[in-house]
Each structure stands twice: as structure tokens, then as C-alpha cells.
């Protein structure tokens, strides 16, 4: 008994300490970034001023005054919201069909969807840029960003929703059929209320993915549709490395999504475990 008690006591202390230690390692770069954002560019590169520095809001004020932060932020919000909405609007009917009326091809279709994520984005960079610029004339429009963001996230959206829908007993949908509900009613009155948790976490994750997307948003926009990723990117190159300013921009870019994630932790965990936790 004594040994068991000792072991429990040991694990009661050891695992939380380890967890906190790992969490702090992960968190340190963000902490460092936030800290740096309150330093002047000169102080930012001096290691001896890691904690001892004179805090300043200059970087933030500068950012909103000179770099039009709010325009980039607005673009990020608009493109992420619409891309998430569009991905769900397509993903829900698609996952519904595959979960409740599967055919022999369903498994292959799902695999094919996932396989599109295996193609390196760089492989299609040239055609994408060339076509959108020279033929379609949609380069640097919010429309293009929304379409691209929703399409690159669609496989994940469908996979997640499919997994959630699969957990809903088939008989409940069949009971709906016996009750004479239409296909749309089936989705609206039965499926969505039951899959609400899954739907919310899917939406949240998609939103985060859209917000954080950098590869395409940086390359397919210049000014008009540029998102916060582009703002960070833009502050990196032209005037050398100004860590203070860059940190302020980065902190302001990831801030909203961290706050959102904080408030929706429970949903997120559920989403990341793909419905394994009920």
C-alpha cells in the first residue's frame, strides 16, 4: 500500500511539473515575441535587455498609424469568415451524403480528398499565380483568397464532419424518413442539432487554419486582399530586421486567434481528437 501511495504522490507531482515545463517551452517564443513588441528596435536585439527594458507602445502606435493594420485585419476576418462558411456549406451536404448514403466509392473518394493535401503547394504555385493574374483577373482579390482558403481546407472539413456524422445512429435519420422529413429538413432539424458540437469545432478549426494560412495569402495578394500574414511578411523584408516592430505586428496578428482559441478550448480539444472524446 505504501508503495502505491508513494507512486501516486510521485505521479501527482511529476506529471503536472513535466506538463508545465513542456508547455512553457512551447509558449516561450510567443512570450518572447510579446515582450519584444514592447521594446524599441534597438533594445530588441540586445540579449541583456531580455527582461530589463523600458517598455514602449511605439511599435503598436506606429503599426496602426503607418501600416494600416486595420485594413489587413479586416481582410483576415472577411476572408476567414467567408472561407469557413463556404467550406461548411459545401462540406456539410457532402459529409452527410457519404455518412448516410455511402456507396462503394465512398472510401476511395474520402482518400482522394485527403490525397489532395499531399500535393506540395509549391508545385502549383506557378500555374496558380499565372492563371489568376493573366487569365482570370482575380489576382489579389478577396474572392480569390476566399476560394483558395476554403478549397485547401475542404478535405479536412469533410473528413471531420464525416467522422462526427458517422457517430449519429443511422436509425435516427431513418426515423426522420419515416416521419416524412425532407432531405433539407433531415439536415436542418435532425443532423445539425445532433452534430452541433462537431460542427462548431470544425468551424473553429477551419477558421483558425484560414486565419493562419500564409503560403497562398502571401503569394496571391499584393495590397487589395492582403491579410495579416501578408502584413507580417511585408514588415520582414524592406527595411531590414526590426524585431520590435515585427513582433508587434505578429502579436497583433495572432492575438485575436489566440483569444478565440482560449475561449473555445473545450470545442477545440473535441475537434482535434476527431470526435474520439464524447
Amino acid at each position: 500500500m505504501a508503495i502505491v501511495a508513494q507512486q501516486t504522490k510521485f505521479s501527482k507531482i511529476f506529471w503536472p511539473v513535466l506538463a508545465w515545463f513542456i508547455a512553457l517551452i512551447f509558449f516561450f517564443p510567443i512570450f518572447w515575441m510579446v515582450l519584444t513588441s514592447f521594446k524599441t528596435d534597438a533594445d530588441a536585439v540586445k540579449p541583456e535587455f531580455l527582461f530589463t527594458f523600458k517598455p514602449t507602445l511605439e511599435n503598436y502606435l506606429n503599426m496602426t498609424a503607418n501600416y494600416d493594420y486595420w485594413r489587413f485585419a479586416t481582410n483576415s476576418v472577411i476572408t476567414s469568415v467567408f472561407a469557413t462558411g463556404f467550406a461548411l456549406a459545401v462540406g456539410v451536404p457532402c459529409a452527410y451524403a457519404m455518412a448516410f448514403n455511402p456507396s462503394r466509392a465512398t472510401k476511395d473518394v474520402l482518400m482522394w480528398m485527403l490525397s489532395t493535401k499531399m500535393l506540395p503547394a509549391a508545385a502549383v504555385l506557378y500555374p496558380m499565380t499565372f492563371l489568376t493574374k493573366n487569365f482570370l483577373g482575380v489576382f489579389d482579390t478577396k474572392f480569390l483568397v476566399i476560394v483558395v482558403l476554403s478549397l485547401i481546407n475542404l478535405p479536412i472539413v469533410i473528413w471531420m464532419l464525416f467522422t462526427y456524422f458517422k457517430e449519429i445512429p443511422k436509425e435516427i435519420i431513418e426515423a426522420g424518413k419515416m416521419d416524412g422529413v425532407s432531405t433539407w429538413g433531415e439536415i436542418k432539424d435532425i443532423l445539425l442539432p445532433l452534430a452541433w458540437g462537431g460542427l462548431a469545432s470544425t468551424a473553429l478549426l477551419t477558421f483558425i487554419f484560414c486565419w493562419n494560412e500564409a503560403y497562398w495569402t502571401v503569394r496571391l495578394t499584393t495590397t487589395e486582399a492582403a491579410t495579416l500574414s501578408k502584413l507580417i511578411e511585408g514588415n520582414r523584408a524592406p527595411e531590414g530586421l526590426f524585431f520590435g516592430r515585427l513582433s508587434a505586428v505578429s502579436a497583433a496578428a495572432v492575438g485575436p486567434i489566440i483569444v478565440l482559441g482560449w475561449f473555445c478550448q473545450k470545442q477545440l480539444v473535441q475537434g482535434l481528437t476527431f470526435g474520439a472524446v464524447k
Binding site: 445512429p169 436509425e171 435516427i172 431513418e174 426515423a175 426522420g176 424518413k177 419515416m178 416521419d179 416524412g180 422529413v181 435532425i190 445532433l194
Partner: peptide, 17 residues
């Protein structure tokens, strides 16, 4: 369609909403 057949079904798993 099932609902138009004038039949009602009781499922093994109840299948309540």
C-alpha cells in the same frame, strides 16, 4: 416514400430524436 406509405416503425434502438 416511407412517410407516404401509411406505415409507422418502432426501431430496436428506439431512435428517438
Amino acid at each position: 416514400a416511407p412517410a407516404k406509405r401509411g406505415v409507422a416503425m418502432v426501431f430496436q434502438t428506439y431512435a428517438l430524436y
